[in-house]
Amino acid sequence: MKYIIKYLSLYIEYSKIIFARGTEFKTDFVLGICINLISTLFTPLFQFLIYHNTRGYPGWTFDEIILFQSILLFWNGIILTLFGSIRYRITPMIIYGHFELFLLKPYPALLLIFAGGFNYYSIGTILAGIILSIYALIKLNLIIGFIQILLFWTFFFIGILFYLSIMIFFLCISFILIYIFNLFEIKDRLISLAHFPAEIYSGLFKTIYLIFFPLAIWTYYPSQTFLGKLNIISIYACISSILMFILSLIAWNFTIKKYTGAGG
C-alpha cells in the first residue's frame, strides 16, 4: 500500500510538471484543449449518423447506444489523460538513448514510463463522457444500485490492467525494434475495435472480443452492467485481463535485460 501511495504521489508530481510545461506555451495549450473538445463532440454525432443511416446495432436502441458511447468517451478520456503522452515520449527516448535515464531512478522503469503518461488535453473528454452518461441514464430511466456501481468500477480497474498489458507488450516490441511509431498506430486500430458492441461481431471474433482478448471489458461490459444485461462470461474476461497483465510483466522483465541503449 505504501508503495502504491508513493507511486501515485510521483504520478501526481509528474502530472503537475507536464501541466506546467503545457502552460509555458499558452496558445498551444488553449488550442489543444479546444481541438480535443470539438473532436470529442463529433463522436456521438458520428454514432447518431451511423445509427440513423444504417440498421444500427442489432439489439441496441438509440439511447442505449448513447449510453455505450458515453461510457466509451469516459473510458477513452481516462486512458488518454492517464497514459496519452507515453507514445509521443517513449519512441524518441528509445531511439536516442534517453530511456536509460529512467534506469537511474529509484523506481521501476515501467512505473516511470507510466508516470509520464499524463495528457491534460483529454480531460474534456472525461467531462463529456460523464455528462453524456448522466443524460443517457436519465433518458433510459435507469436506476443504478450499489452492486452495479461496484461492478462498473471493477471492470474499470481490471480494464486499466488490460490496457496496461497491451501497452507493456508494445513497449517490449519497441525495445526490440527500436522505432515503433507505426506499431502504436496498429495498437490504436486494435483498441478501436472496442468502440463497437459485441453484437456486431460473430463467431471466433466475438469470443476473442468477449473473453480471450477482452476488449469488451472497457465499454461493453460496463454498459451491460447499467442496462442489467450482464453475462457471466464477463468473469472470464476479468481473468484473461489479469493473466495478460501478469504475462506482460514477465515479458517486460525479460526484454529490459536486452536493452542496448544508444552510443555514447
Binding site: 536509460e100 534506469l103 537511474l104 535485460k257 536493452y259 542496448t260 541503449g261 552510443g263 555514447g264
Partner: peptide
C-alpha cells in the same frame, strides 16, 4: 568503451 563501462557500472546495461 568509456560510456559502455559507465553504463554497466550504473546498471543501465547488463
Amino acid at each position: 568503451g568509456k560510456s559502455t563501462l559507465i553504463k554497466m557500472l550504473t546498471g543501465i546495461l547488463f
